[in-house]
Simulated scan of single mutants.
Amino acid sequence: MFELRRLRLLHELSLRGTLAAVADALSYSPSTISQQLAQLERDAGIALLVPDGRRVRLTEQGAALAAHAARALDADEEMRAELERLQPSIAPVRLAVLQTAARTIVPTALTLLAERAPMLRVELAEVPPEEGLFELSARGFDLAIAEQYPGLTRAHRPDLERHTLGLDPLRLATRGAAGPLGDLADRAWVMEPVGTAAREWAVQQCRAAGFEPDVRFSLADLGAHVALIASGHAVGMLPDLLWNGSRPPVTLGALPGDPAREIFAASRRSGAGRPGIRLVRDAIADAFDGLGAA
């Protein structure tokens, strides 16, 4: 009989690629991971890993067992969700959020939850959407608030389901009056780091306007974007959700086509039935709707 804990280690290795990455994600030592996977090989009676330079890779049998491990983990989560429905518990809900949601949606959602389910514990981490969705699939989180930019699609993971919260308009941000986007070709730009959907989308807007942006400032903190723009050191593109009804310290202008990003909540299909996850997701949706009403 295979032990579920060891199967999860194999599943994590199939996702993350290295023993060190698995150890870091699960707060184990690499030697502990190696020992547990070696025991799993003995349980299976066949080689699951082979050396590949300084790393290891899954054998064909290892990949097959990793796929079965994913299904076993889903089944375990579904069983726990069913038990939680029959006997409500206070199992914590681990939530991954993008920065603007942490500043605006989450505080209101937590206030709603304090009234609706005061015993429910919500654990929050601010992570980029790309990382949040990956870790959600890897069971590091139970729920994620993420974004999708117009014209840029995210891969649809079959193990995740999405619930659209609404649209968040995107605008040109400058200090003082500014003309069309094409007039800012010679200005310094601040954008989010390379590899993020926000960066790719913003660069594409500039290219469509006929120029390659001079990105001098690459920062994940949108508050730093605002400070650089307000002080006249850069221009950028910012979402309305950042302001949440407050007066922006920058000048906001229209972008071609009046674009908006989609904000959505995602959860694993196997755990979506958990009452706690539903409560948090509903509170997030109500909080977002409340912002629109304001």
Rank of each mutant, 00 (worst) to 15 (best):
H233S: 13
I105M: 03
L170K: 02
A173S: 10
E192A: 12
D289Y: 05
R187W: 04
L113Y: 08
L133D: 01
S29D: 10
R94M: 12
M1D: 11
A230N: 02
A294P: 09
L152P: 03
R247H: 13
I90L: 13
A220Y: 10
R57K: 11
V250G: 00
A202L: 02
G257D: 05
L19N: 03
I46M: 07
T153M: 11
A125H: 09
I46H: 12
A64D: 13
G176N: 07
A293G: 02
T18Y: 15
D168H: 07
A125R: 15
V250D: 01
L143T: 00
A146D: 01
L184R: 12
A81K: 00
S31N: 14
R103T: 09
D76N: 07
R54V: 11
T164I: 12
P150Y: 11
G62E: 04
G276A: 07
L255G: 04
A144S: 13
I46C: 09
V106C: 03
I263W: 00
D282I: 06
P213Q: 08
G236N: 09
D289W: 01
R171P: 06
E126R: 14
D43T: 08
E77M: 15
A224P: 10
P239V: 00
D282V: 12
I284F: 08
V22P: 00
E131K: 13
P248E: 05
R274F: 08
G132Q: 01
A146G: 08
E130N: 11
L170M: 15
L13P: 00
E3S: 15
A81I: 02
R94Q: 10
R80L: 14
A260L: 06
L255M: 06
C206A: 09
R54H: 10
E200G: 11
D240P: 04
L238Y: 09
A224G: 09
H233R: 15
A101R: 01
L160H: 04
T174Q: 08
M1C: 08
L152W: 07
L228Q: 02
G176L: 07
F134S: 15
A208T: 07
L15M: 12
A185H: 13
A265V: 15
P275N: 09
F211L: 05
H68C: 15
V280C: 03
V56R: 15
P213Y: 05
A96C: 01
R103V: 10
E82Y: 10
L167G: 04
A138K: 02
I46N: 11
H225D: 07
E200A: 15
L238I: 15
Q99P: 04
G179L: 06
R207H: 06
A101G: 05
G166C: 02
A69C: 05
G232I: 05
E60P: 05
P248C: 08
R216S: 12
W189E: 04
L143V: 02
A63V: 04
E147T: 12
T108M: 12
T32C: 06
A38D: 10
D286N: 10
V122F: 00
A178S: 14
